[in-house]
Amino acid sequence: MSALRNYTLRVWRQKNPKDKGAFAKYKATNISPDMSLLEMLDVINDRLIHDGKEPIAFESDCREGICGACSIVINGIPHGKERGTTACQLHMRHFASGETITLEPWRAKAFPMVKDLVVDRDAFERIQQAGGYVSVNTGSAPDAHSILVHKDDSDKAFDAAACIGCGACVAACKNASASLFVAAKISQLAHLPQGDPERKNRAKSMIMQMDKEGFGSCANTLECEAVCPKEISTRVIAEMNWEFIRASVD
């Protein structure tokens, strides 16, 4: 077993949306470098509860990088500095012993504060509900080869479909734009014949809902692509813009 490490945590604590909130410091002692960042927080929370203090609220579910629940800005970067990973896949071995680690929630007007490191990401759900689906008769499964899809298209659709809807793109963007997320959802279905019947309406409705939620506009800074744990390419944003124009002209 590798030597245990010690850290200082600077964590955003905010009891509820009305509370002003502030950073609090915690000593994280005897932490295994094999732990993930979230497992380290589990240990800290166990100790806080033992001492009669309130644990740090944060979100997690699958803890294997596919659910999109974990959402922590680590040392200023959503999901931390490691590329292509979520906070739950970030291990303590990437932090030197003695380091101070700053943990903050996603910050965006469209993601209202709930508590500590937890924000309300329902805005994403409402954007999905506005058109991020295919209306089909689900009565029986068609034969796999009954609808032919070109390999290039299926690859592009799959790349976009890798989006887990975590919201890191919003948290990284200076405008708090949701463009990468919305574009991934639109692009995914725009490349598939199954998505074709509702294609125009989908592009318009999802973009309208995105604006209604109060997300900012895209300024092509590409911070979103840099922090995306699924490494979604900003190519999809160009596709979204094209889909929107296409839906508007005829």
């Binding site: 509820n16 033992h50 309130e54 644990p55 609220a57 508590k115 937890v118």
Partner: peptide, 13 residues
């Protein structure tokens, strides 16, 4: 067992 926090707020514990 110890469950800190409030009942009417988000309380993962």
């Amino acid at each position: 067992v110890r469950v800190p926090g409030e009942v009417d707020e988000l309380n993962p514990t």
